[in-house]
């Protein structure tokens, strides 16, 4: 009968089984004590819970839940970067450290070469040419350095002087 006492206490017995335990309980002092003890444990567990539920502010609780969900849905820009760094498989593997170092070296080496100003050869340009029966004169000029060349020809292509 003692095996049925707990299911009886928990209201898990059928009508007939309950009736039998009821009858037994009226006579058995040990089972009465056990039943009373189970009731006390139940009361001790349950009573403070009922009291706490009555005091609780569930509206405030809901507001906290809502705020927390919103916060997690729209993280700050700093958080977004952190999350992106966390989820990027390439960055997770730390391969970016040697990759960035290589890129930096390449930039330092190539940029000075690409942007180096090489001195351009001074190109002389003909600014004037005079053709005459006695002398032919040709004037050349260059901008940098500022040079003027005057070329005198005599007769058929014979050079006289330059200055």
């Amino acid at each position: 009968m003692s095996k049925r006492l707990e299911p009886y206490f928990d209201q898990e017995l059928t009508g007939e089984e309950r009736r039998q335990v009821d009858e037994h309980l009226r006579e058995c002092r040990t089972c009465q004590e056990s039943f009373k003890l189970m009731e006390r444990i139940r009361g001790a567990i349950k009573q403070p819970v009922d009291g706490a539920v009555e005091k609780e502010d569930f509206q405030l609780m809901w507001q906290n839940i809502q705020r927390e969900i919103r916060l997690r849905e729209s993280p700050s820009w700093l958080e977004s970067i952190r999350v992106w760094l966390d989820i990027s498989p390439l960055l997770q593997k730390k391969v970016w450290i040697p990759a960035l170092a290589t890129m930096a070296i390449l930039v330092f080496v190539t940029v000075p070469i690409l942007f180096k100003k090489s001195p351009s050869p001074s190109v002389l340009s003909v600014v004037e040419y005079v053709d005459s029966p006695t002398y032919n004169v040709m004037v050349y000029e260059s901008e940098k350095p500022e040079v003027t060349v005057i070329w005198l020809f005599e007769g058929q292509g014979e050079e006289l002087s330059t200055s």
Partner: peptide, 16 residues
């Protein structure tokens, strides 16, 4: 379910 979940939680931790 607020009260039911609260009762379970309180039952375990016994602290509001």
């Amino acid at each position: 379910y607020q009260k039911k979940v609260y009762r379970i939680a309180y039952g375990v931790v016994r602290r509001r």
